[in-house]
Design a protein around this nucleic acid. Structure first.
Lengths: 217, 217
DNA sequence: GTCTATATCCAGATAGAC
DNA sequence: GTCTATCTGGATATAGAC
């Protein structure tokens, strides 16, 4: 019998685990609902009934609707962070840019509601908590680290980069949801960007095989 | 006495003019409200009281809330069309691209709610009517015409263009509303784009004065 | 931790008098 | 064209029994 593990803490752990499991189920259900009905259309009543609860019981898990949005915000950013961690980023600068662009645009275009919650100001009055926002900053820093390794130095270049990939994602979601009209432009966009900030290895879209890599600055 | 203009029609005209004026006032008030409270936060009650009406009276002017959104959608697109018509677009390709990029990004960043209504799918269930959507298509065609004149041929290039300018606008609104962190990247972004699709007149950001204009294709 | 009961207020929309 | 009156339903949130 383990001496330093009395029964009480273990039971408390079990209870807490169950609490977390229910919370997880609520969050997953919420995601599924906003995916079909739209982010702003989420109602706590409908959510509660979808998990077989009375609406009031939700308040055991989330203090308010905005608190729920806040958890979803953290959740989505954590998912993106996980993908960053799980993706091997090539050392070659252009390949690295392609990898991170694909990673982000794929993540963004998979879920319109998630994109709106994480990157647009769709819900009036919603502001992520400092803790949740910190995760978003961490993710952004992951992206920045990749670009720095690829030879990017200027903040303005990083901003141009985020505008480019966010633009592809945004247009894909708004004008061709579920399609690939803008997704398929990713590689071309990366080439355009890399030519601009890293120096053109190949002039004007004509591929030059075996050209030496261009220096960063 | 004018023979072919009886009194009845004139009175009808006056009434209709008054009707249109009130409609205009409601629309303007709605714009002002969504600008401060957020697009999705608009309520017909609050709107009605802001124009000193009972909520029910609004239905004389707009058949539903979505009908109001639809009029706002048309309204915003008409404003953008007006700006296109009023702006002189230079003949030189890069200058033309700069002009249209500035025009669009300025319009977009002036009003977050308007941007969300016109270009993002913020309101669950809202779809513009065919008549309103036609105005949006017309505006898009204006932009396309400028790029065609500048030497752009491929549809994919036009899509890359809209992604780029929409990305700048979107990031400006989401991450630095009211500032110019992304707006000031417009010229750089246009250079990047033009180098890519029109051919690099200047290699890697080093301006070459008096260089001959590059051919379109 | 979940429920019943309730509070409070708001939403969009319709009917019909004036 | 605007009002009063009303419908119907929804929203978020709290109190307290079990």
């Amino acid at each position: 019998m383990p001496p330093t593990t009395p029964a009480q803490p273990r039971r408390r752990d079990r209870r807490r685990a169950r609490h977390e499991a229910t919370k997880r189920e609520i969050l997953d259900t919420a995601w599924s609902m906003v995916r079909t009905d739209g982010l702003a259309a989420l109602s706590l009543r409908a959510l509660a009934h979808a998990v077989d609860m009375e609406p009031q019981s939700l308040y055991t898990y989330f203090a308010s609707k905005n608190a729920l949005y806040d958890h979803m915000f953290a959740d989505g950013n954590q998912e993106l962070a996980r993908r960053f961690a799980d993706t091997e980023i090539p050392g070659e600068p252009r390949a690295a840019l392609r990898a991170v662009a694909r990673l982000f645009v794929e993540f963004a275009t998979q879920d319109q509601a998630r994109y709106q919650l994480l990157f647009l100001r769709t819900i009036p009055g919603f502001r992520p908590s400092p803790e949740s926002y910190a995760i978003a900053v961490e993710v952004l820093d992951s992206g920045r680290a990749v670009l720095t390794r690829a030879g990017l130095r200027a903040d303005a270049d990083f901003d141009l980069w985020t505008a480019l990939v966010a633009g592809l994602a945004s247009q894909q979601l708004a004008n061709d949801p579920g399609g690939d009209r803008y997704v398929r432009l990713i590689d071309d966009a990366v080439t355009m960007f890399a030519d601009h900030v890293l120096g053109a290895r190949r002039p004007h879209r004509a591929p030059v095989p075996e050209a030496p890599p261009a220096p960063a600055s």
